[in-house]
Computed example of a mutant assay.
Amino acid sequence: MATLLHIDSSVFPAEASASRAVTAAFRSHWQEQHPDGTVVHRDLAARPVPHITADAHTAGFADPATHTPGQAAAFAERARLIEELEQADAVLIGAPMYNFTIPSTLKAWLDNVILFGRTAGETPSAKGTPVTVIASRGGSYAPGTPRESYEYVQNYLTAVLADTLGLELDFIVPELTMAPHNPAMAELVPLFEASRARAFEEAAAQAKRLAA
């Protein structure tokens, strides 16, 4: 039975979030292909995971038999998150761009699941697991655009998810999501609409491709 690990990090509810709309579509198509599958959903806005503490960090490099009570408690939470990643057959992440990078809640989740000697290092424990990131953003940071150099979502997540954790990474990028709400961007609304439609098409295609 297949398992999808679904991570959302937008601070907005589904009806107001570009990333949540596309992750929901992806999940729906995935479930159509896996009617008996399991979805583990973590909404990091509704239930943030703990930020890394000294206890949580040092416990990852120490013999469990030597853990203090504080280290043991902190590492137990990390272990749950790591096991969810390791047990997933596919991972879906909603990663909207906030102030040029990912939400802090998503960074906290990543800090918890990156553990050298286990999920990272020479033999990452989740290596090869497909991960699809819905990287929505209010403007455009694509190659050749004026703000290309401010794109710190895809390049950061590539370094972490692909290069460090060894996951098989794909991006879906709904962009210009502020165009319908910002009069200064009114002329970009058709480009936004095309980007949104393309994102839903790619989500459907990717979910079905993973099932195959």
Score class of each variant (00 low, 15 high):
His6Thr: 06
His6Val: 08
Asp8Tyr: 01
Ser9Asn: 05
Ser9Val: 06
Val11Lys: 05
Phe12Gly: 00
Ala14Ile: 14
Glu15Met: 04
Glu15Cys: 02
Glu15Trp: 01
Ser19Asn: 11
Ala21Gly: 11
Ala21Trp: 00
Thr23Val: 07
Thr23Tyr: 09
Ala24Met: 07
Ala24Pro: 03
Ala24Tyr: 08
Ala25Ile: 06
Arg27Ala: 15
Arg27Leu: 12
Ser28Lys: 14
Trp30Gln: 07
Trp30Leu: 07
Glu32Ser: 13
Pro35Ala: 06
Asp36Phe: 03
Asp36Gln: 14
Val39Asn: 06
Val40Cys: 05
Arg42Thr: 10
Asp43Tyr: 02
Asp43Val: 10
Asp43His: 12
Asp43Thr: 12
Ala46Gly: 05
Ala46Tyr: 09
Arg47Gly: 07
Pro48Val: 13
Val49Lys: 02
Val49Gln: 09
Pro50Met: 12
Ala54Leu: 14
His57Thr: 12
Phe61Ala: 12
Asp63Lys: 07
Pro64Ile: 10
Pro64Asp: 03
Pro64Arg: 06
Pro64Gly: 08
Ala65Lys: 13
Ala65Gly: 15
Thr66Gln: 14
Thr66Ile: 00
Thr66Glu: 14
His67Asp: 06
His67Trp: 15
Thr68Pro: 01
Gln71Trp: 05
Gln71Pro: 07
Ala72Asn: 10
Ala72Glu: 13
Phe75Leu: 03
Ile82Asn: 00
Glu84Leu: 08
Glu86Trp: 00
Gln87Tyr: 00
Asp89Ser: 02
Ala90Leu: 05
Val91Phe: 09
Val91Ala: 04
Leu92Arg: 07
Leu92Lys: 04
Leu92Cys: 09
Ile93Asn: 02
Gly94Tyr: 03
Gly94Gln: 02
Ala95Lys: 08
Pro96Phe: 13
Pro96Met: 10
Met97Gly: 01
Tyr98Pro: 05
Tyr98Trp: 15
Asn99Trp: 04
Thr101Cys: 06
Ile102Leu: 12
Pro103Ser: 09
Pro103Thr: 10
Ser104Cys: 05
Lys107Arg: 14
Ala108Thr: 04
Phe116Val: 14
Arg118Phe: 05
Thr119Gly: 04
Gly121Thr: 09
Glu122Tyr: 02
Pro124Ala: 09
Pro124Trp: 07
Pro124Glu: 09
Ser125Val: 02
Ser125Tyr: 02
Lys127Gly: 01
Lys127Asn: 05
Gly128Leu: 11
Val131Arg: 09
Thr132Asp: 06
Val133Lys: 06
Ile134Phe: 08
Ser136Thr: 12
Gly138Thr: 02
Ser140Thr: 15
Ser140Trp: 03
Tyr141Phe: 15
Tyr141Met: 10
Pro143Leu: 13
Thr145His: 08
Pro146Tyr: 11
Arg147Glu: 11
Tyr150Leu: 15
Tyr150Phe: 14
Glu151Ala: 11
Tyr156Pro: 06
Leu157Ser: 11
Ala162Thr: 10
Leu165Asp: 03
Gly166Cys: 03
Leu167Arg: 04
Asp170Ala: 13
Asp170Pro: 00
Phe171Asn: 01
Phe171Gln: 06
Ile172Ser: 08
Val173Ala: 05
Thr177Asp: 02
Thr177Asn: 09
Pro180Leu: 06
Pro180Phe: 01
Val189Ala: 04
Leu191Trp: 00
Leu191Pro: 00
Ala194Val: 07
Arg198Ser: 14
Arg198Pro: 01
Phe200His: 15
Phe200Lys: 08
Phe200Gly: 04
Ala203Leu: 12
Ala204Lys: 13
Ala205His: 07
Gln206His: 12
Gln206Met: 11
Leu210Tyr: 08
Ala211Leu: 04
Ala212Glu: 15
